[in-house]
Design a protein around this nucleic acid. Structure first.
Length: 414
RNA sequence: GCGGAAUUGGUGAAGUGGUUAACACGCCGGAUUGUGGCUCCGGUAUGCGUGGGUUCGAUCCCCACAUUUCGCCCCA
């Protein structure tokens, strides 16, 4: 038997119902928040991710699906959505249109990782990007929108962790101070952190091994190394979040693994058991320099992305949608009536189904209940001869015989 | 990439080096010859992740691989 590739999965059963619900809600939200849909390619030039996400990041250095096509082009399956959107923004000269540009996407991403609970090699991210505004209200919207979406989906124990990375200059100043502080304690840190000290000292902050050590508890905070303007801006973001009733917590150790972030970064966390160790269900931040880095004009931007597989894990099961009508029959004459009546009802906007496996009438009743059918139509040759059809309300169990010519109107009126 | 655990029908699972692989749910059928959801009765894995090996004989022992899962790493 051929099985699915490692790290992929089929969305079936209740997961499929959850995903349908999520996707419907996403469209609804994006419409009301005034975002435009964008779809970009699933593979892009390898270089795009090296220049945006960063050569040195784990995602790019060891998790991408890279390949050459038949003309030896270097291509990569997208490991995240922002790079492609920004590339499209520049390539299609959207910076010349009315700004800000508010875009949303929802698609599969690929990372060659060890699969686990809420972690797959092919996974789905929904994300939005606001390009061309540095207003703190944008930051607040980018955080509050997914927060409200998750609330609407019934996800419990939501919390936003937020931090301010500041400008590149602010970060450089902080890195100097951080290194100065850590230097004497270097031998006390874990191996990974000793390596990070050279490559990316900020990442030591969210190390899980050393997190409880005295050294990291007393580490200088990045928030103390911000310019006045940056701090002022961050406080405004927090103020707006208060107004929007978002439950947040400033955490100066949130750094994120993608190089393009600056100023506001955040994670939305749910402590639901089903998520296990994968409690971050959405994350994002500002990337005011990315458009320029990729060759476009200076354009301040912010966005977030959420992993739908994790959202599904955090959700309660979704009830199957009820079927309006189930039609029952036994002989061929009745069956013909069943399939034609079903078609007429479906065209009239009534959801209908009927048996196609030769079940007994008894089993057809069971099948109707499994489908949570509201109305049962029980066809009977004797009745049909007199132009009548039996309709049973599956809640009240009331049964009536209706004239064949009025059956559709009768069912619609129920 | 590193370390641990698991893998038996549609599902949850018991089980033993040797005839027919428990039990439960589900599903199908019957009692009820065209009105169910209760009850009772019956049916429902030629197979125990895959490939090797040990053995007279393996689902059960050994090895490898795959997949899943937990932790590390990282992240959505």
């Amino acid at each position: 038997m051929i099985t699915k590739p490692k790290g992929t999965y089929d969305v079936i059963g209740n997961d499929a119902q959850k995903l349908e619900r999520i996707n419907r809600l996403i469209e609804y939200f994006c419409d009301f928040y005034n975002y435009e849909y964008i779809r970009t390619p699933i593979f892009e030039a390898t270089d795009l991710f090296h220049r945006s996400v960063g050569d040195e990041t784990d995602i790019v250095s060891k998790e991408t699906y890279d390949f050459k096509d038949r003309s030896d082009r270097e291509l990569t399956l997208r490991p995240e959505g922002t790079a492609g959107v920004v590339r499209s923004f520049i390539e299609n000269k959207m910076y010349g249109t009315i700004l800000p540009k508010k875009l949303w996407y929802n698609g599969t991403m690929y990372r060659y990782e060890r699969p686990g609970n809420g972690r797959n090699r092919e996974f789905t991210q929904f994300g939005v990007e606001i390009l061309g505004s540095n207003d703190p209200a944008v930051d607040a919207e980018i955080i509050s929108m997914p927060y409200r979406l998750f609330e609407e989906l019934g996800i419990k124990d939501l919390n936003v962790k937020i931090n301010n990375l500041g400008s590149k200059e602010d970060r450089e100043n902080y890195k100097v101070a951080l290194k100065k502080y850590l230097e004497p304690h270097l031998s006390e840190l874990c191996e990974d952190c000793q390596r990070r000290f050279k490559t990316n000292p900020l990442r030591i902050l969210d190390c899980k091994v050393d997190n409880n050590s005295e050294i990291l508890k007393n580490v200088p905070s990045i928030l103390d190394y911000q310019s006045e303007e940056s701090t002022k801006r961050f406080n405004k973001v927090l103020e707006y979040l208060e107004y929007l009733d978002v439950d947040y917590e400033v955490d100066s150790k949130i750094v994120r693994g993608l190089d393009y972030y600056d100023y506001t970064v955040f994670e939305i966390v749910s402590e639901t058991d089903a998520l296990g160790g994968a409690s971050t269900i959405a994350a994002g931040g500002r990337y005011n320099n990315l458009v320029a880095t990729l060759g476009g004009p200076d354009t301040p931007c912010m966005g977030f992305a959420t992993g739908l597989e994790r959202v599904m894990l955090a959700m309660e099961d979704v009830d199957k949608r009820a079927l309006d009508c189930y039609i029952m029959y036994v002989n061929e004459e009745e069956k013909i009536k069943a399939i034609t009546l079903a078609q007429d009802l479906r065209i009239s906007g009534v959801s209908v189904d009927y048996d196609t496996t030769g079940r007994s009438l008894k089993s057809q009743f069971k099948e109707a209940d499994r489908n949570n059918a509201q109305i049962l139509v029980i066809l009977n040759s004797e009745d049909l001869k007199r132009g009548l059809i039996t309709v049973k309300d599956n809640l009240t169990k009331e049964e009536t015989k209706v004239d064949e010519n009025e059956i559709i109107d009768y069912i619609i009126s129920r």
